[in-house]
Design a protein around this nucleic acid. Structure first.
Length: 581
RNA sequence: CGGGGCGUAGCGUAGUGGCUAGCGCGCUUGCUUUGGGAGCAAGAGAUCGAGAGUUCGAGUCUCUCCGCCCCGACCA
């Protein structure tokens, strides 16, 4: 039983000055966490209870799925990370330190190497697989900018699992098992979330999905089709095939278009020259970029912006990508800023990529590669060809869903989980092989699956709060029932005490506000701020032999006979989970 | 790393180069009060982020450093 009279807790009346998002403000105000350094937080008793409850749910679901828990150190030697080149690749995001002998160590940002080596050390036969093991561990990443309180820290707790299989079919099964376990986990945590197609990114691998908890302050942007349920991270969003119809356009015609370095000015001139009706979407933008030092051009319709992050995500292997700057134009005189067209790309030795909207057979008004000149009827397939199609435009609300063509919506969310098929990258680098049934050596294929445990505390807080304070789901709340005793006599306090004991005896956790000196107002405010799902007030109504029961989430209140309190509250907890939390 | 902002008591904040750095919350003591962050009275609590400088005099002006927040870049 948590007694407010002795609980190590001080609630704050004002929002902390350094907090911006709701979860951060409320977790600090309600006395759950305190900041220690940028992106580094301490858990106070209430916060640690929430944290442990979430960890417990995660652990139970992992165990239920048959995965086995292990535990690695957070402090790791650099050697395994050198073998996969991540000691170098991770760069400044890695917390590095040396021991007294000058040996290099790191604080683990993620543990693929350690898991791979652990399995390599024990297993060597296909008969040992499949295997899934996990840990719940503090991770360290020296983020360039920690933000949003607990949501994005430099120290955080993650549950990471890894699956090991002999072949792709096995990996698919392991992946699916994790996916199901994640669904159960997040459902129990009371989180609203979408499972979203993601890019596997720098980690390589194929299938990849993110579990995103929608909330306005989230850092991730994703698209959702409300009609068919398609959901994807903006980087992974694909464009439906473009149908090209109509006759072959006339041959290229070069036009004098003085002072038209922008799409808008070009459209105006075209309308003046050939009559109204020309749109920005009839023109073609040639966006020049530097990809790892090499100039490339990306083609998008003129009414669209290029999303550099998306381009990079879709250009395999490119580490650094940036837009052309003045000095780049200065070096490449043949590329006339504002008048670039794809028809001379081969001659310029420029790699060309097209957004799918710039399909083969489409024709465009675009630059003529001469100052103050544009060309029309420039046709993909006839007048230029590309080195590849990549998703390049900034995704907009209303874009067509790749599955059903309906307009999609765009939303923000917190990433609470990520599952993906790693493939053989780490097994290869660290030489994790097993003998198959034919006695041949096979490189193991792996999956990697993460849940942000500490982040989930903030995600729930972010999704579940109101103007009064936090609103915890039953499963993870500090206590199921928050009993407030009011009045100056002993009776309400004694009564509350007895009710609390009998609830606890029935396995229902209780927080009891047994403070004699605090005013009722303070106790009510604290109860609402702290956010336990059921609030029971033992006070005024006691004169009629009643107590008041309030549902934190809905604000619903009613008085019930004290004699029924134990059974009524028990049944609320046991059978009304969904309506109260 | 670029841009912006901020560092004054546990928290939130005021402070015009000039007397003993002020207020609210919280805390302590006493009395009163007890269904919506109570009232009265008396207290404790600050090397004003650090260092250097200008000045008769610096929380206030200058410089350097440190820390923190926001936007961007970045981010299994």
């Amino acid at each position: 039983m948590l007694r407010m009279s002795s609980l190590f807790l001080r609630t704050l009346r004002d929002d902390p000055a350094d907090a911006e998002v709701a979860s951060h403000k409320l977790l600090v105000r309600a006395g759950y966490v305190r900041r220690i350094a940028a992106g580094v937080y301490s858990w106070l008793p209430l916060g640690y209870i929430i944290y442990r409850n979430i960890e417990r749910v995660v652990r139970e679901e992992m165990d239920a799925a048959g995965f086995q828990e292990v535990h690695f150190p957070a402090l790791l030697p650099k050697e395994p990370y050198e073998r996969t080149n991540r000691w170098a690749e991770y760069g400044p995001d890695l917390f590095r330190l040396q021991d007294r002998k000058g040996g290099d160590y790191l604080l683990g940002p993620t543990h693929e190497e350690m898991f791979t080596l652990m399995v390599k050390g024990e297993y060597s036969s296909y008969k040992d697989l499949p295997l899934s093991i996990y840990q719940i561990q503090t991770k360290y990443r020296d983020e360039p900018r920690p933000r949003s309180g607990i949501i994005r820290g430099r120290e955080f707790v993650m549950k990471d699992s890894y699956s090991f299989d002999v072949d792709d079919a096995g990996l698919e099964v392991s992946y699916e098992k994790h996916r199901q376990a994640y669904i159960k986990t997040f459902d129990r945590l009371g989180l609203k979330y979408n499972i979203v197609k993601a890019m596997s990114g720098a980690m390589g691998g194929s299938r990849s999905e993110e579990f995103l908890a929608p909330c306005p302050t989230g850092e991730d942007t994703y698209v959702l089709c409300e009609k068919c349920g398609y959901a994807a991270n903006v980087e992974a969003m694909t464009t439906p095939d473009v149908k090209v119809e109509g006759a072959t356009p006339p041959a290229i015609e070069v036009l004098d278009t003085p002072n038209t370095p922008t799409i808008d000015s070009l459209v105006d001139v075209m309308n003046a020259k050939f009559g109204p009706g020309h749109k920005a979407s009839d023109t073609l933008k040639n966006i020049l970029l530097i990809a790892d030092g090499e100039a490339i051009s990306v083609l998008v319709p003129g009414d669209r912006e290029v999303d550099v992050k998306r381009v990079q995500a879709n250009l395999a292997g490119v580490k650094e990508l940036r837009l052309f700057e003045e000095e780049d134009f200065a070096k490449r005189k043949e590329l006339v800023k504002g008048y670039v067209g794809p028809q001379d790309a081969k001659r310029f030795g420029l790699k060309l990529y097209a957004d799918p909207r710039v399909a083969v057979g489409t024709h465009w008004i675009t630059g003529a590669n001469q100052l103050n000149k544009h060309a029309r009827y420039v046709t993909h397939g006839r007048d230029f060809t590309v080195d590849g199609f990549i998703e390049a435009v900034e995704v907009r609300a209303g874009d067509a869903c790749p599955q059903c063509q309906s307009p999609v919506i765009i939303d923000r969310a917190i990433e609470i989980g990520h599952i993906f098929q790693l493939g053989r990258k780490y097994a290869q680098a660290l030489d994790l092989t097993v003998l198959d049934a034919d006695g041949k050596s096979q490189v193991v294929t792996m999956g990697s699956y993460g849940i942000g445990v500490s982040r989930a505390v903030a995600a729930v807080a972010e999704q579940s709060h109101d103007e009064l304070g936090l609103v915890w789901p039953l499963e993870i709340a500090p206590a199921k029932v928050h009993i407030v005793a009011t009045g100056k006599d002993d009776l309400p306090f004694d009564t509350a005490e007895k009710l609390a004991s009998s609830l606890e005896a029935n396995g229902i956790t209780v927080m009891l506000d047994d403070r004699r000196e605090a005013s009722p107002g303070v106790k009510f405010k604290d109860a609402e701020l702290i956010g336990n799902p059921i609030i029971v007030i033992v006070g005024k109504a006691l004169a009629d032999g009643k107590v008041e029961v309030r549902i934190r989430k809905t604000g619903e209140k009613r008085e019930i006979a004290l004699s029924d309190a134990l059974t009524e509250i028990s049944s609320l907890v046991r059978s009304h989970k969904n309506s109260i939390a």
